[in-house]
C-alpha cells in the first residue's frame, strides 16, 4: 500500500492526463458516431440510436479508464522520478503519440481497405519506439512541459461533460443487460 502511494501520482496530476486520454477516445468515437447516424436513421428509431449512444459513451469511459490504468501501472513499476513526478508531461505525450498513431493507422486502413500483419506489427513497434523517444526527454524540454500542461488544462473541462453522461450511459447499459 505504501509502495502504491509512493509510486502513484496525486489526483491533481491524474485528472489532466485522464482528460487528454478521454478527449482523444471520446472525440474519435463521437466523430465516427455522428458519421454513422445518418445510415442508422434509415432503419433505427431515435430511441434505438440513443441506446447505441449509451453503449458508445459507456465504452469510451471504460476504454479511457483502461488506458489510464495502463499508465498508472507503469507508474507503479517505474521509480517515482521517472513517471510519478512528471506524470502530466509524460502521460500527455504518451497519450497523444500512442493513441494518435493508432488513430492514424485506422484512418489509413479505412482509406486503403486492407492490411497485413507484418505492417501492423511494424507500425505498432515504431509507434511504441516513437512514444518512448518523445516521452523520455519531454520533461526536460520546457516548451513541451508548458504545452502539455496547457493542453491538459484546456481539455479537462470535457471530463466534467463526459463523466456524468458516461456514468448515466453505463447505468443504461447495465440495466438493459440485467433485466
Amino acid at each position: 500500500m505504501r509502495l502504491l502511494k509512493s509510486r502513484l501520482p496525486p489526483s491533481s496530476s491524474i485528472l489532466p492526463v485522464f482528460a487528454v486520454i478521454s478527449f482523444l477516445v471520446y472525440g474519435w468515437m463521437l466523430i465516427i458516431f455522428f458519421w454513422k447516424v445518418p445510415s442508422w436513421l434509415m432503419f433505427l428509431t431515435l430511441d434505438e440510436i440513443l441506446v447505441n449512444l449509451a453503449y458508445v459513451l459507456a465504452a469510451a469511459l471504460l476504454e479511457s479508464l483502461a488506458i489510464l490504468g495502463l499508465f498508472l501501472l507503469v507508474c507503479i513499476l517505474l521509480p517515482a522520478a521517472m513517471m510519478k513526478d512528471v506524470f502530466v508531461t509524460r502521460g500527455t505525450v504518451a497519450a497523444l503519440i500512442g493513441l494518435g498513431s493508432i488513430m492514424l493507422y485506422m484512418y489509413i486502413f479505412s482509406e486503403v481497405g486492407y492490411s497485413f500483419l507484418d505492417d501492423l506489427l511494424l507500425w505498432t513497434l515504431s509507434s511504441l519506439a516513437l512514444t518512448l523517444l518523445l516521452t523520455v526527454p519531454a520533461p526536460r524540454l520546457n516548451f513541451i512541459v508548458r504545452l502539455t500542461a496547457w493542453t491538459s488544462d484546456r481539455v479537462t473541462v470535457f471530463v466534467y461533460l463526459f463523466l456524468p453522461l458516461s456514468a448515466l450511459s453505463l447505468l443504461v447499459v447495465i440495466s438493459r443487460n440485467l433485466f
Binding site: 477516445v25 468515437m29 465516427i32 458519421w35 469510451a60 476504454e63 488506458i67 493508432i102 485506422m106
Partner: peptide, 9 residues
C-alpha cells in the same frame, strides 16, 4: 472506421 480506434486496432 471502427467506432473505437483502440478496439478496432
Amino acid at each position: 472506421l471502427s467506432g473505437s480506434a483502440l478496439m478496432g486496432y
